[in-house]
């Protein structure tokens, strides 16, 4: 485990904690896309099938359980919690999941490293994770005055992806035969999706004004 990978995982963990903090403490999910959260739950459910078949490390297993547990509980909160569900921007969060899920599934069926159930599911989860943030970005664009926690949540998620790229560069030079084209391309595409958000995030931070994305 290198420092970029660890920092990436910790940033990812922090993003989930920020979101849970907002939902659990403030009892609000305003500005949070349920569509994106459901896609993440699906991403982790399809990616971590190996949690029961392969043991990598205690760290690995614990983190997988955290991401599975947190993503499903966030979805539960937004859909079913008596108070939280009332703050959900249902009319604004209109992105259709299947527009992302079906192309990702088709791509995974044709472009993968090995044609086994677990491997195709794993590849599907990579493709889906790359685009799962889109409903959230669309919702942010529609929301005037993005609150701090939601802005930080998306920023931390983007930072996590960026750090993973540094992790792959590091591993490429330090580990023999570490070549994973599918992971890398999906990861770079995912990070690029945040470029626009990052620009406005830093602008608002620099000028000390509330984050707002242009329509």
């Amino acid at each position: 485990m290198n420092i970029f990978r660890l920092a990436g995982d910790m940033t990812h963990l922090a993003s989930v904690l920020v979101l849970l903090l907002k939902i659990h403490t403030i009892k609000s999910c305003a500005g949070v896309s349920l569509k994106t959260q459901e896609l993440y739950a699906l991403v982790f459910a399809t990616r971590y099938l190996d949690i029961v078949t392969d043991f990598i490390s205690v760290y690995n297993t614990v983190m997988k359980l955290i991401f599975l547990g947190s993503s499903f509980s966030i979805v539960w909160y937004i859909r079913h919690h008596r108070v939280v569900r009332r703050s959900y921007d249902k009319d604004q969060d209109t992105f259709r999941h299947y527009l992302l899920m079906i192309p990702c599934m088709l791509l995974a069926l044709f472009v993968h490293e090995k044609f086994t159930f677990k491997e195709v599911m794993w590849t599907f989860s990579l493709y889906l994770e790359a685009v799962a943030i889109l409903p959230q970005l669309v919702l942010l664009q529609r929301t005037r005055n993005i609150d701090n926690l939601t802005g930080q949540y998306v920023f931390l998620l983007g930072a996590y992806r960026g750090l993973y790229i540094f992790n792959w560069i590091y591993r490429y030079f330090t580990e023999p035969h570490f070549v994973h084209w599918i992971t890398w391309i999906a990861g770079v595409v995912q990070t690029l999706l945040y470029a626009d958000f990052f620009y406005y995030y830093f602008e608002s931070w620099k000028n000390n004004v509330r984050l707002q994305l242009p329509a």
Partner: peptide, 10 residues
């Protein structure tokens, strides 16, 4: 070395 069967990243 990471193989395609064992993915050690999250």
């Amino acid at each position: 070395v990471q193989t395609s069967e064992t993915h050690d990243e999250l």
